[in-house]
Simulated scan of single mutants.
Amino acid sequence: MTLPVLPEREGDRPVTGPEIPHLQLTQTSPPDVKENLRQWMTTALPGVVTGRSEISPPSTWAVFLKEAATAEDVHLMPPRWNSEFVHLHADGSLHLCLDPADHPAFLTSGWGEKHPFYDRGVNVVMFYAPRSQSELEVAKKVIAASYHYATGHAATTETATA
């Protein structure tokens, strides 16, 4: 387990689409919050590269490991299953991979939901689009946990909150 204890998400659950592509339809991120998140993901996680997602719509921006995850128990996003571990949609929501042991705590915290293919063995959850700076800080913690799951390396304090 790598996910820190999360505060309960405030407010109603956003409306999300029930099919692929799995997107958030309400409560999207303000442009400045989304851009701050993108900038943080570009600079805060060592050993990553960014680019267009290999699995999501063309407007989706992803973070990939420079060196593929090799641990047998680490399962990231298709199609390669060992490189893309988080991506950011145009609405500000994220899909990411977490240690399966962290899924129950993440889902009960109210910050996200299962991907439509989750019950088919795809280790992907949606983190709802952060709506404020404080929600952006929670997103960083969850992304840092995804990074730790993907790499086996804990993010430093500076990485998790920069």
Rank of each mutant, 00 (worst) to 15 (best):
E19P: 02
K66R: 14
H87T: 07
W81M: 13
E158L: 04
E35S: 05
H115S: 14
V138M: 00
T70K: 00
E137C: 08
T151A: 01
M126N: 09
D99C: 12
Y118W: 15
Y147G: 05
A155N: 12
S109R: 01
V122F: 15
P4T: 04
P58A: 13
Q39V: 07
F64A: 06
K34A: 14
T108A: 02
A154G: 07
W81A: 01
S134M: 08
S53C: 08
R38I: 05
A129L: 10
K140R: 15
P79M: 13
K141T: 13
P30H: 05
E8M: 09
V125T: 08
D12F: 08
A90S: 14
E113C: 13
R120G: 12
D119C: 12
L3K: 02
L76V: 04
L37Y: 01
H148V: 07
E135A: 08
V74E: 00
F106I: 04
A160I: 09
P31V: 03
H22S: 10
T26H: 04
Y147W: 15
P116V: 13
F64D: 12
G51H: 06
H75P: 00
P130Q: 15
R80C: 01
Q39K: 01
T60N: 14
N123H: 12
V49A: 10
L37T: 01
G11V: 11
M126S: 12
R13Q: 13
V142S: 02
G47A: 03
Y149E: 04
P46V: 06
E158D: 14
D91N: 02
H103T: 09
K66S: 14
G121L: 13
A105K: 05
S83C: 03
Q24L: 06
P4Y: 05
K141P: 08
D91F: 09
R9C: 04
P4E: 00
A150R: 03
S109E: 05
P104S: 09
R120K: 15
T159V: 08
L23M: 10
Q24I: 08
V48I: 15
S132V: 06
E35N: 07
S132D: 03
P116Y: 15
V63C: 11
T156H: 03
Y149P: 10
G11R: 03
W40R: 05
P100Y: 09
G152Q: 00
L107V: 05
P21V: 11
P18M: 10
H115T: 11
G110D: 06
F117C: 15
H95M: 12
H103D: 09
I20T: 12
L3N: 10
P31C: 04
V49F: 04
S134I: 10
S146T: 12
E8C: 04
L37E: 00
T151H: 00
G121Y: 10
I143F: 06
Q24W: 06
P4M: 01
V74T: 08
T50P: 01
W61G: 09
W61Q: 05
P14G: 05
S83M: 05
E72Q: 02
